[in-house]
């Protein structure tokens, strides 16, 4: 099915938010799920986590960072434009229950997928500690939204330009775990090195930790295995068995390697895109 862009907003230098008209998906989606979209006939299938949805209005929010050709192209679309295909909701929803204190951690654009989980955990009656971080102040997104669904909110920046000076994993350890504060579950989403750092920290304190993985995907229905990761020594498909897994079991090293398979091609594709744009070729 195709989907119209209803709203567009730039959240930081490289991060954009789109609100899409997608009533069927908006009605069904649950926290933790994602969609796959295709911009145009020659386009690739792009998986993006659902950042928010409004079942009554039939809208779906996606938030993404421009990294390669496809996300750059997506960021250039405007209100009123149509995405060629939108499919979802995909993946397993987050397991939400009342367990006590939950720390919801988002790094960079990872705050976007953490938000619906935080909201769901809050609604389930948990005490929410949110820790969101980025390289510097300008890259912090969704601070107000996160504040609204958290009991405590810590903002971190790598360069100290805002809030806690350091990584989200350090804030978690120094402000909470080291102080002996009881946390029953950690949910961490962001760049793989960040998720790995959080998991290394929580392992020391034996705090169960869920991560949401963003591996390379093609069909996202369990048909191809492009998205496979090793979890506890077993091969799992992120698109159907995940995207959330026990962070202490994930082979992050393999995930990082697998995310780099097409680095060369991604650059080539981006260059091709820029050249075509300069030459004013349509149809991109």
């Amino acid at each position: 099915m195709s989907a119209k862009i209803l709203e567009k907003e730039q959240l930081s230098e490289n991060v954009f938010k789109l609100v899409l008209d997608a009533p069927k998906i908006a009605k069904k989606r649950k926290a933790g799920q994602f969609v796959v979209l295709r911009i145009h006939e020659e386009g690739e299938r792009i998986p993006l986590t659902i950042a928010d949805a409004n079942a009554e209005k039939g809208t779906l929010t996606i938030i993404f960072q421009t990294v390669g050709k496809s996300t750059n192209h997506l960021s250039e679309l405007n209100v009123g434009d149509e995405l060629l295909d939108l499919v979802g909701p995909l993946g397993k929803p987050t397991h939400v229950e009342k367990i006590g204190t939950v720390a919801c951690i988002g790094g960079g654009v990872g705050v976007a997928p953490v938000y619906p989980i935080t909201e769901a955990m809050k609604n389930a009656g948990n005490h929410i500690i949110s820790i969101i971080g980025a390289r510097d102040k300008s890259l912090i997104i969704m601070e107000d939204e996160m504040k609204a669904v958290s009991d405590e909110l810590v903002v971190t920046t790598d360069d100290g330009s805002y809030g806690f000076h350091g990584f989200v994993s350090q804030a978690l350890e120094e402000k909470y775990l080291l102080q002996g504060k009881k946390i029953d579950l950690v949910v961490a989403i962001g760049p793989v090195p960040m998720m790995r750092a959080v998991c290394d920290t929580t392992k020391k304190y034996n705090v169960p930790t869920v991560v949401s993985l963003n591996s390379i995907m093609v069909d996202a229905t369990g048909m191809c295995g492009a998205c496979r990761v090793s979890v506890g020594g077993k091969t799992r498909f992120v698109c159907v068995d995940g995207p959330e897994f026990d962070g202490h079991q994930v082979d992050f090293r393999e995930l990082i390697d697998r995310q780099r398979i097409y680095l060369k091609e991604e650059k080539e594709c981006m260059d091709h895109y820029c050249t075509c744009k300069q030459q004013g070729k349509g149809g991109l």
């Binding site: 020659e42 690739e44 299938r45 050709k69 093609v218 191809c224 697998r258 080539e268």
Partner: peptide
Amino acid sequence: NLNGVYSANEYLTRSNLMKAYLFPEYDT
């Protein structure tokens, strides 16, 4: 799970459905 090891489904889906053989005209 090493890079460069594909399932036939992924290899063929990339090439056929996504037309990766026409990369970079096609994005996949």
